[in-house]
Design a protein around this nucleic acid. Structure first.
Lengths: 342, 342
DNA sequence: TTGAAAGCGCTACCAA
DNA sequence: TTGGTAGCGCTTTCAA
């Protein structure tokens, strides 16, 4: 039903080839002809059928993005930025939310492979690298976001998770906390990196985690961690040596933890200081404004988009590039025990 | 580089047509042949080229979604659900965030038209209906989300905004507020509907808006309204008859307004009660937990997805369907002045 | 500067 | 039950 090159060609008594060349700004077309063609295109509001073009050129001008939870502000921010950046270059973006389900994610990746996207960005919920070997076989370039996988050397853009742990924990130590606990996330690279950073920072302050002071939330994705945070904090508060500072895996977990602390009749930060990670949009407005490590989601989004565009163009296999974004701490009331030093 | 039907056909000494039929579960294929073909497909990890298929069938099995701001939890929720629902039926979803910019939105729609999506869902930032006439010309079905446009009769899924206004305002009146103000949004259908509802509810409680008690936030998208809400509320608090209740266009605006109220040394809800709209994820954790009208974004997402799938299949032009989702109020501390009745 | 011919990977149609 | 032929809308190559 929509207009085709052939229609324009017939209308103007020209060949399809000529029209096609005008469409793509090919140089060797007479000025007069070009004008006529452009005019007719406008009249018909002509849109080239990109599927047909892809079939020949092998490029689809599409990019795929798979995230575990589009509702999570961190991923929403990244998705928004990537969408904006790639659009500027004429790409369209397939986005899908895997709900933290490895099987759903695999299906989605398969779908995107069938659609021959030019490049794929994945914040993965996989435990194994098998799926990625498949992508490599199809020779479609891909980028891992946020989470890395052991044994997989590939393009990566994400925050430096060890630095996240160090930043948060050191801050608590510097605020005078003596018994710093950690509510850790599930067994993925982000949680492991932050835990490492936590241990490292404690060590450099000559502390050591007390028994029972590292607790884990259950499965991730569990109402985005609020419940897990509540339960974990409840456990911590009941432990023999009650912690006076908690570094939480992420902000939703921190919200849950703060609720548990307040419910127990304790004060934040006087009795227990709290630091989260993610710096989500509403941190300023919370009952106790939450100190949080910012993961630089905007920078991650921009870098990821830039890398994706580069990969989409250079079919040449650049060697895998890993971009670790340095995090920064945003201090708010939940961890501020000392008069604001500078 | 990836395997093609032809490759499988050659390997097995069959014709392309036979392979194609196996691929699509065509009935008239011998069991033995089918088995052989399927085996080979698995070995090669064969993925049909969907672009080629589209060219013939005219269907792309893709759907387009355009929202003003993917970071806004309301739209993120809708996007997430639509993504999940349509995937179940084998569709992939293009998502893009227009940043509340009508021009960007138009470009994006054009792009999606060129990609021949089977159906489009748009939460539009347009002021005019021109763009939609273009879509209609191309005979691609579309659904408006959240916001309607005057003079455009088309498929729509969104909350009943008048009911939103009535619900919030009546609640404030029932909580004993005597001077109820409204911070309204920009000139789009949602803001107008909520304003209408506000007026209607006041009237039915034999009240009338006091002069200066309806203020507008500036341009929408302004850091998602928090700043606008702060400024608007500051104006309201300075007015001759200070309001004792404020119905805010949405939750970000309400957050800004609450900050202004607290900054002015007033109490919520004792001095000023506040109700927002959107019921965003963190409402429970706020400094003062925010009462809010829930727009039923999950229901909207599901209904929109179902309608989109129906339109994608039935090429028959159903007559436009408008689904108004009834909102419901979630009462929290910010508006609770009376001992919880009931 | 223009256009005829070939073909991208797949499906529709009809004949064997 | 199987397969030859034609063609989707476009680009590429090469000849006029």
């Amino acid at each position: 039903m929509p207009a085709r090159l052939k229609d324009i060609a017939n209308d103007l008594g020209l060949s399809v080839v000529t029209i096609s060349k005008v469409l793509r700004n090919h140089p060797d077309i007479g000025e007069a002809t070009r004008k006529r063609v452009l005019k007719r295109m406008k009249e018909l509001d002509y849109q080239p059928n990109l599927a047909a073009r892809s079939l020949i050129t092998g490029q689809t001008w599409t990019i795929g993005l798979v995230v575990p939870d589009l509702l999570h502000p961190f991923f929403a921010q990244i998705a928004k930025l990537i969408s904006a950046e790639v659009r500027k270059k004429g790409y369209s973006l397939f986005i899908s939310s895997s709900d933290e389900d490895p099987e759903l994610e695999r299906q989605e990746i398969k779908q995107l492979l069938a659609r021959r996207v030019d490049v794929m960005l994945i914040a993965s919920a996989q435990w194994t690298i098998e799926t990625f070997r498949q992508i490599e076989q199809q020779k479609i370039p891909y980028i891992l976001l946020d989470r890395q996988l052991a044994g997989l050397e590939c393009n990566f853009v994400g925050v430096d998770d060890r630095a996240v742990g160090v930043l948060a924990t050191s801050h608590l130590a510097e605020q005078g906390c003596k018994r710093i606990a950690h509510i850790r996330g599930p067994e993925v690279s982000t949680a492991i990196g932050r835990l490492d950073g936590y241990r490292q920072a404690l060590a450099s302050h000559r502390m050591t985690p007390l028994p029972g002071h590292i607790v884990s939330i259950g499965k991730s994705g569990d109402h985005r961690g609020e419940r897990g945070g509540y339960e974990a904090a409840t456990k911590l508060l009941a432990s023999k040596k009650r912690p006076d500072g908690i570094f939480c895996f992420n902000d939703p977990v921190a919200l849950g933890a703060m609720r548990a602390i307040l419910d127990a009749g304790l004060r934040i930060p006087e009795d227990v200081a709290v630091v989260g990670c993610g710096n989500l949009s509403y941190s300023d407005f919370l009952r106790v404004p939450l100190s949080s490590v910012d993961q630089g989601s905007k920078i991650i989004g921009k870098r990821a988009a830039a890398l994706a565009l580069a990969l989409a163009h250079n079919k040449a296999p650049l060697r895998p590039k890993s971009e670790l974004i340095p995090p920064h701490l945003v201090v708010r009331a939940s961890s501020l025990r000392l008069p604001a030093a500078k």
